[in-house]
Design a binder for these strands. Sequence first.
DNA 1: CACGGGATTGCGCGAAAATGCATGAAATTT
DNA 2: AAATTTCATGCATTTTCGCGCAATCCCGTG
Lengths: 251, 251
Amino acid sequence: MLTSQRKSLILDILRRDGQVIAKQVAESLSLSEDTIRRDLREMAAEGLLKRVHGGATPISPELPDFSTRKDVSLEGKQRLGAKAADLIKPGQMIFLDGGTTTAEVVRHLPRSFAFTIVTHSPTIATELEHHPTAEVVLIGGRLYKHSMVATGAVAMAAISQLRPDIFFLGVTAAHPVHGLSTGDFEEAAIKRHIAGCAADTYVLLTEDKLDRVSACQILPVSGVSGLIVPSEVKEAQLAPYRDLNAAILEA
Amino acid sequence: MLTSQRKSLILDILRRDGQVIAKQVAESLSLSEDTIRRDLREMAAEGLLKRVHGGATPISPELPDFSTRKDVSLEGKQRLGAKAADLIKPGQMIFLDGGTTTAEVVRHLPRSFAFTIVTHSPTIATELEHHPTAEVVLIGGRLYKHSMVATGAVAMAAISQLRPDIFFLGVTAAHPVHGLSTGDFEEAAIKRHIAGCAADTYVLLTEDKLDRVSACQILPVSGVSGLIVPSEVKEAQLAPYRDLNAAILEA
DNA sequence: CACGGGATTGCGCGAAAATGCATGAAATTT
DNA sequence: AAATTTCATGCATTTTCGCGCAATCCCGTG
């Protein structure tokens, strides 16, 4: 195991668990704690994590939803959400992915006619509590706390029984060659499955996700009906996606 | 559990409940009160909270609304929740009903060992996002917005596949003759079904629900393992329930 | 092939941190 | 005023830390 590999492994653990315990890592890698502590010290010096007694924690106090990610491109996300909600027609069944971007769709859902929202995210479901006309179907399963969505065989089976008219897909990265991707293997599989069941799939893409790649591919860009992107994205940046026959909706 | 994590956990509790009780935290983390008190002392020195006898309060003066409401109605529910959480043993599978009373159980769940929480309420699931040791299983189905729980055939089927060790049941009324009841037919059926699958069922009962009747019976009082009631309820009022062989846990 | 610099790792050691317990003081309740 | 709970302090134990040192390994050079 190379040192650099070990360090990125530590970062992975940090992202996944929100903490690193020196002793545990040392044990799982069959290395001395000294080595791990050295890594942690160095990484702390580089500003990659915060060293604490016993291990390390993320550099910024973990506020995944409400402050950090939200403020970044809030206004852009809102426009994406509004554009997505515009696509919904009376009586349709809409599958909403988990995540902060798709949560924005909820806030712009039409209130003048009835439709059905399906989601595997309890967070999304909770936000729909006071919506006047939306019927809500919740997909169950083992909850993936990292992104707060139901996963596993139970979720897959439940999804299989539905034919949503539209699936609004959230991703962490989109790339013309490497397609749409996300950081977790299981999640990628679920998203792919939902897209397979839905008549149409639209991806909500904030500007910072374009031309990026994450670990697990969900689908190629050509596998979805369209991309919804903020209008300020340059045409040059969109061209490679257009070449893949992807419809581009600017919000 | 790292010390720094414990401290931020304390801050979380402070923000959520408007107070921290040293004894409670020590218990839920299986640590000595000394340790927690030490934390509180240090955090008070850092200006993160205000140390008071028994625990700590936010640095800014409490909102009047908060303290009053807390002392009156919430405090009873909190004790019910704490008592219920006390019943949980490592590795068990616990089914949590929807509702504000059972939501209080979530806030008192042990954090020192692992267990599984099953729920058909997205609200409950969302509250468990930051719990360190709880595995969460979400039951899907058509969402009943009135009480925010999944219902219907899909939910029933998913529940059938589980054998929870304990079901914490929420009701709107309890009566020695008319049993445990709630306002909605479908909900009653679901609750009954969950109770049938669980090894033990405990009902959380605030004082105002005793000797009341709602439209749809869930189970007779003799159909559950026990009732959890606030300790200030008079023995005379409890006697009819004791006669039904119901275990009574006072919180 | 031999050699040496640089990087990496494990171990020993004393220091620092964290935790629990005991004790007597202080606050709160009865 | 007595009883109970909560507190702060000192102390002992365990865990974790950082540093120096030596062994090892990688790699380019003579």
